[in-house]
């Protein structure tokens, strides 16, 4: 990739580096720029990107649980409709009692993402209003998208074992037990024996 093609990407990086204290910044590939910031820098960076740089489309927001580091990584992904670049703004907050500022006054649809992340990861957004329940109903366990939520244990505890499989044996084992059964003619050509 020549320097010329990534001209716009580099321009954006230079602007942001000059203006803000970035922990890390890089061009991932053409049309993808990534910056990592402290949680308190999130609103200034997002507002600057929207109001001054033309990143007006809020494309996505996601949260990743890095349980081994004791942190959540929250990613805001913006899109510039003219320059056709996706800007990733990443920040890390502690898993326990961490919080992020609410940004739904910048983009109203961020409200939905924040409500889902609050519910699924238990991450607090300062000043976030809106109905407490989004997808889950009467949930009294730890937030289910956290890595330490054990889906298997939860299922065993909450749901009963389906009747008809009382022996809880693997189907493949059961089939293997049937050695003396004669295969019907049409099935013989598929047999492994």
């Amino acid at each position: 990739m020549s320097e010329n093609i990534l001209h716009n990407e580099q321009k954006l990086l230079n602007l942001l580096e000059k203006k803000f204290l970035l922990k890390e910044s890089r061009i991932i590939r053409a049309k993808r720029v990534e910056v990592k910031v402290e949680p308190k820098e999130v609103i200034p960076v997002l507002l600057y990107a929207k109001e001054n740089s033309g990143y007006i489309h809020f494309a996505h927001m996601s949260c990743v649980d890095w349980i081994e580091d004791g942190e959540f990584e929250v990613v805001y992904i913006l899109w510039h409709p003219e320059e056709k670049i996706n800007l990733f703004v990443k920040t890390r907050v502690p898993r326990d009692n961490g919080s992020l500022p609410n940004i739904d006054f910048i983009w109203r649809q961020a409200n939905t993402y924040e409500r889902e992340i609050r519910e699924m990861f238990g991450l607090r957004f300062e000043g976030l209003e809106g109905r407490k329940e989004f997808i889950l109903e009467d949930w009294n366990n730890i937030p289910p998208m956290r890595r330490d939520f054990d889906t298997e244990a939860y299922v065993k505890e909450v749901f009963f074992h389906r009747l008809g499989r009382e022996d809880a044996k693997d189907v493949r084992e059961k089939i293997q037990e049937r050695t003396d059964e004669e295969l019907p003619d049409f099935a013989k050509k598929y047999s492994r024996d």
């Binding site: 494309a59 996505h60 996601s62 649980d65 992904i77 109203r108 649809q109 409200n111 939905t112």
Partner: peptide
């Protein structure tokens, strides 16, 4: 626009796959 945000931690399973369909915005806000 239908988007996927995918994170790998180097193992044989995805760390996170986040799906964003157009209805996520169209159907709510």
């Amino acid at each position: 626009e239908f988007a996927y945000y995918m994170v790998s931690d180097g193992s044989n399973k995805p760390r996170r796959v986040h799906v964003k369909g157009p209805a996520y915005v169209h159907g709510v806000t």
